[in-house]
């Protein structure tokens, strides 16, 4: 397997040889909420996973559809990549929000800039554990509501239902849409920036 073909495997040009700093953002949410979809919509590589080998049957299908055809849960996380400039590359991790996957946080996501909690208002409870964990760790995060075309909820209702502090951004998004997902990331980084400058001042 030479370099060329292994790059084809990830479907993207290799990173610039000058890249020296990798950053992480984690997108966390319940089953089928669209994490993989969001990672895919902005990633320059097809989302990869450590468990790729076990889930090949579902290539090209979102995580919700993929699990239909298999009997075991195997995928720990999947991730995508955005080259920011000649020195920096950003890795996006889609992480399951359930408790039993949370050990990944220490193993893989230490040093993460911040997190996006992806919420489906039809199943907001799926995000509770993740939000509790993030608050517990003091990890900065924003909440993004992935639009599944369900019943409309006013943002303030969602905010209240999730018991979010006023300073935590809450936005709507369509995880399939590249611009929308990009806006989610920018909202997170802006939030981090304001927290950071406030702290540094």
């Amino acid at each position: 397997m030479d370099l060329k073909s292994s790059d084809q495997a990830t479907g993207a040009a290799p990173l610039p040889s000058t890249v020296s700093n990798a950053l992480k953002i984690v997108i966390v949410g319940g089953f089928g909420v669209g994490k993989t979809t969001m990672v895919r919509s902005v990633s320059e590589i097809r989302p990869l996973s450590t468990e790729e080998i076990m889930t090949r049957a579902g290539v090209g299908i979102d995580d919700a559809g993929e699990v239909r055809g298999k009997t075991t849960t195997t995928v720990a996380f999947d991730f995508g990549r955005i080259t920011l400039n000649d020195e920096m590359v950003l890795y996006l991790f889609g992480a399951p929000g359930q408790q039993r996957f949370w050990f990944l946080w220490d193993r893989l996501f230490s040093g993460t800039l911040g997190a996006v909690v992806l919420v489906d208002t039809r199943r907001v409870q799926d995000s509770w554990y993740a939000i509790d964990r993030l608050e517990h760790h003091g990890m900065p995060f924003i909440v993004a509501r992935n639009d599944f075309g369900g019943p409309e909820h006013r943002p303030e209702d969602i905010r209240e239902a999730l018991d979010l502090s006023e300073d935590i951004p809450l936005i709507d998004c369509d995880a399939r849409d590249r611009q929308s997902s990009k806006k989610v990331l920018i909202t997170l980084v802006n939030h981090l920036y304001s927290l950071s400058t406030r702290e540094h001042v």
């Binding site: 409870q125 509770w128 554990y129 939000i131 509790d132 517990h136 019943p151 209240e160």
Partner: peptide, 16 residues
């Protein structure tokens, strides 16, 4: 809250 179940902070951690 408007048809959404309400989260209570830390509850899931305590439960876990």
């Amino acid at each position: 809250i408007a048809g959404l179940p309400k989260r209570r902070r830390g509850q899931t951690l305590a439960a876990a």
